[in-house]
Design a protein around this nucleic acid. Structure first.
Lengths: 245, 245
DNA sequence: TTAACGGATGAATCTTGGC
DNA sequence: GGCCAAGATTCATCCGTTA
């Protein structure tokens, strides 16, 4: 199933299956926020319903269930390598790839990225100042973005982009449990070619698509959950209306 | 060879050999900045003279040669696991470990830390705003600190410590090519027990020791290079004089 | 328009209890 | 005893609301 938009297209279904139907060398960048499967270091993470894993009792706000976030470390690497390999095929040579990860999965993700044929370029830091405090410990207030490229790596402008990006999460505008700020995605898109097509196989609430629309890029998104696909479609239409109006 | 100070002791020699002479469970924390061996992903990095690897021709300031920074990735992990295992033996249960790493060696370092028996707790980010700009790319303005602990992990205060630390490098006060700001080390020491003994097997210019002196902790340092050991000893004496006066 | 106040929140982690 | 699941705990920051 797919929905066509002015600025792109969204497929609803399994990322790996959908990616296989798309043609070689048709995309200019990969920007995505896959399920982290964190805590997946232990088999306990393989619980049947990972939906509310990250939400504590008493939380007012609830989100629809997150699918596919229940892998242990080994299968996480295998799975990530599989979809990253498909993405590699879809990307044009020189295309950048930006993949979100938390601290725990970062080494696994850099392995998978390289196993899929990408050249690892660096690690971008997302500093989210509103993270939960931890007494006597370092606050886990950073998430990481693995920066890679399908060789030969290219640059698309002569601007200097900061490697540590500070953006607060706006919970009121967040529709996905792990929703990212649009401004953060815009910062990441800054290293992708203007007017290019951006692939996001884990579209979630559609933030990547919105950032594309607001910066004049096209998008190809995939989202497994029908519930999130619908939420994303709404937000995408709003964003398109806003830039048209 | 060793030099005794009011606040600690420095050994000049090979880290692994020196650590082997020290007694079990005698240290309260490990804080160190080992040679990164970056670029060591390929065997070409095993060049005979790694001394000036990070300095481009025409650089005004030069530093004494860095020893032991010429390993490929596999031997880096093996070597890191060896000295980390010795450190593990020297640490008391619950002691925190903080090990600097650049983005390229971060996955190797988290592997080595865990192979040596530590529990990996997180990744602290050092944001250095003065990093070299890169056109069309993300600036490499973050370094990483692997945060681990000898189980069972303990906390030593009820303060909440930020996980992203912003400190500019002061090149005028830096004596080592990879010298870190004292304030950064002080931030890291904040999760170690007050008045405890901090181990640094790669003392370099002695910044860890200085931060210990300024925060009322003791230190045990090892430095391979006689040249740096001498520079460190000078700085340590100055710092001790400053807190005494 | 700006400043101060207070409630809600958190890609979590630890402890405890059961199998 | 080891493994696993469920419940309790935590407070600086953010942001809307009020002054």
């Amino acid at each position: 199933m797919s929905i066509q938009f002015d600025f792109g297209i969204m497929y609803q279904g399994d990322a790996l299956a959908m990616l296989r139907t798309l043609p070689d060398s048709s995309m200019d960048a990969l920007v995505t926020d896959p399920p982290y499967s964190s805590g997946g270091l232990h088999a306990s993470a393989r619980r049947a319903d990972p939906a509310q894993k990250y939400q504590t009792t008493g939380t007012k706000r609830t989100y629809p269930p997150m699918l596919g976030d229940c892998k242990d470390q080994r299968s996480f690497i295998t799975w990530a390598t599989l979809w990253l390999s498909e993405c590699w095929r879809l990307l044009r040579p020189g295309a950048p790839a930006l993949i979100f990860s938390d601290w725990r999965q970062l080494p696994a993700m850099t392995d998978a990225v390289q196993a899929a044929g990408f050249k690892w370029r660096g690690v971008v830091v997302w500093h989210k100042p509103s993270a939960r405090p931890l007494l006597g410990e370092f606050r886990r207030d950073a998430e990481f973005i693995v920066h890679a490229a399908k060789p030969p790596a290219k640059t698309f402008n002569r601007t200097c982009h900061p490697g540590v990006l500070r953006h607060a999460v706006d919970t009121s505008r967040k529709v996905h449990l792990t929703g990212k700020p649009v401004a953060l995605l815009k910062d990441l898109l800054a290293v992708t070619p203007e007017g290019g097509t951006v692939l996001d196989p884990f579209l979630g609430g559609g933030t990547t698509a919105i950032a594309c629309i607001e910066t004049g890029r096209r998008f190809v998104g995939v989202e497994l959950s029908a519930e999130y696909a619908e939420l994303a479609a709404d937000r995408i239409r709003q964003a398109e209306a806003a830039v048209a109006g």
